[in-house]
């Protein structure tokens, strides 16, 4: 293989273009009181790639995702987004910058229909003020229809047309996961974070979800960072993998490199003490 992965952009074996770095995390340290959840971790996410974060339970993967999405504020280290240092900001401001995410335990709005849930994903695209919305004329109505069209594309893409008007609370687990993905995707994020998108799914649902992730990346060029426990899925899907253990980074590279990394093998299989 001759691709130079340090170049500004390169083309993968399957013909996708991986662009420059979108998000660069430098020396992130996160503590909760005396507990060090993340210890001095640096890695980057490049445009158009599927980046996986793996590690045993409690390794700090979800904390890492929460740092990226602005929910946790790291004590040390910097987050660079599109080349500029990201100041301290609230999670909703991070979302306005073009980050979207899904959650490990589904965080949908149970009282709303699937369509309304997906429409919330587009709230940063809708600018009508409260008075325009109150009379439902002009900008408010126009935006509602334009964004509905965008949402319908996502609905088509994720094959959830039949449940469009169903309240989310009534849906089974697998579909809820898909609706949550739809909500994140509707935001047309420049970086999509998926926290265990396949947790608790059967093989068929996992295959569907993998297909959606690959298609999303392929068709819309969405940059994806995901956490997943299913090694088979991770190794198949991702371009590069970060491995964490006890809050430290123990490996970073292509799936093949990571698979052969002795530290990673030790972390997953244990070290013999003879």
């Amino acid at each position: 293989m001759t691709t130079d992965m340090n170049a500004d952009s390169y083309v993968t074996e399957d013909g996708r273009t991986i662009g420059p770095v979108v998000m660069d995390l430098k020396n992130i340290t996160l503590r909760f009181g005396g507990v060090v959840a993340i210890k001095d971790i640096s890695f980057d996410i490049r445009e158009g790639e599927i980046r996986a974060i793996i590690g045993p339970n409690g390794a700090g993967k979800s904390s890492m995702l929460n740092v990226i999405s602005g929910f946790y504020k790291p004590q040390e280290g910097e987050v660079y987004f599109r080349g500029s240092k990201r100041p301290q900001m609230k999670p909703y401001q991070v979302a306005q910058q073009g980050l979207a995410r899904t959650f490990q335990n589904i965080a949908l709005f149970d009282g709303m229909t699937v369509l309304d849930n997906i429409m919330t994903g587009r709230l940063n695209k809708m600018k009508a003020n409260i008075f325009q919305q109150a009379i439902w004329k002009g900008k408010a109505e126009r935006e509602e229809i334009e964004n509905r069209e965008a949402c319908e594309k996502v609905i088509d893409f994720l094959e959830i047309q039949h449940i469009r008007k169903t309240p989310v609370g009534r849906l089974p687990y697998g579909l809820k996961k898909r609706v949550e993905l739809a909500r994140a995707l509707a935001a047309e994020p420049s970086l999509l974070l998926l926290d265990e998108p396949m947790a608790g799914m059967n093989v068929e649902e996992k295959e569907d979800m993998s297909r959606f992730i690959l298609d999303m990346n392929d068709e819309f060029g969405t940059t994806i960072a995901l956490i997943e426990h299913d090694m088979g899925v991770v190794m198949d899907l991702s371009d590069r993998v970060v491995v964490m253990d006890y809050g430290k980074k123990i490996g970073d590279g292509t799936p093949d490199e990571v698979r052969n990394n002795q530290d990673v093998i030790d972390a997953y299989l244990g070290v013999s003490h003879d």
């Binding site: 979302a95 965080a107 949908l108 009282g111 919330t120 919305q133 439902w136 408010a140 509602e144």
Partner: peptide, 28 residues
Amino acid sequence: NLTRGMMGRKWMGIRDMDIAAEIIGVNP
């Protein structure tokens, strides 16, 4: 009109799960 539009969705998002609403971009 307010409850069926984006305003209403923001309100219901805060009601159903305020943390998730904030992370997808609702200013609580």
